[in-house]
Amino acid sequence: MANMGQTTLQISDLRFGYDARPVVDLPALSVSAGRSCALIGPSGCGKSTLLHLVAGLLRPQAGRVVVAGHDLTVLGDAELDRFRGRHLGIVLQRLHLLSALSVIDNLLLAQRLARVPCDASAVRRSLAELGVEDLAASRPARLSRGQAQRVAIARALVHAPALLLADEPTSSLDDANAARVLELLVQRTRAHGTALLLVTHDRRVSGLLDDQVDLDGLR
């Protein structure tokens, strides 16, 4: 568990664009361990692109992204992949649980790719925290969207990452499920001392998090 209050994510002078069209231009952003930050703004304002930059899935054209003390912009491709697996957790709008694997195998694979010891009891504990431990042997195709989103969160947290990135994690859920999932996200990241950076276009959601950054306002 990261030390509460310690800066987990620090972004400075980050710029990224396509064909000279700037998409992300963020002077500074930081999120501390155990705290949550919402990235808000309308569609096309660069929220998801910023998340991909923080995840190391895109290379910035300028600036720095420092996660848990590591500057991602200087890491090589394979190093970046391994860093992402170990220190980041990612929850996407589309769930992308691997359909060929059972729920428990999805989580065990996440541990394996995070290069942490595979621990079935930790996996079951993680599922239990999200209230889906009885679904361990199920195939993703048999889960409801709410159940699948909980499993996706459990998978993102199973290796105790420093930073959890969530891209519109509640957009495909009904209000009741969305509120429950959001509550779990905040609760579990706080409990694990994990920093949470969440992308949403729903300002009601952003109100439930510690901080918010309106990307539209920065343009």
Binding site: R82, L98, L113
Partner: peptide
Amino acid sequence: QHDLAMLRCLGATRG
């Protein structure tokens, strides 16, 4: 495609 992308998100390298 999405499974492969997700595997990369989870830390799998291209190799």
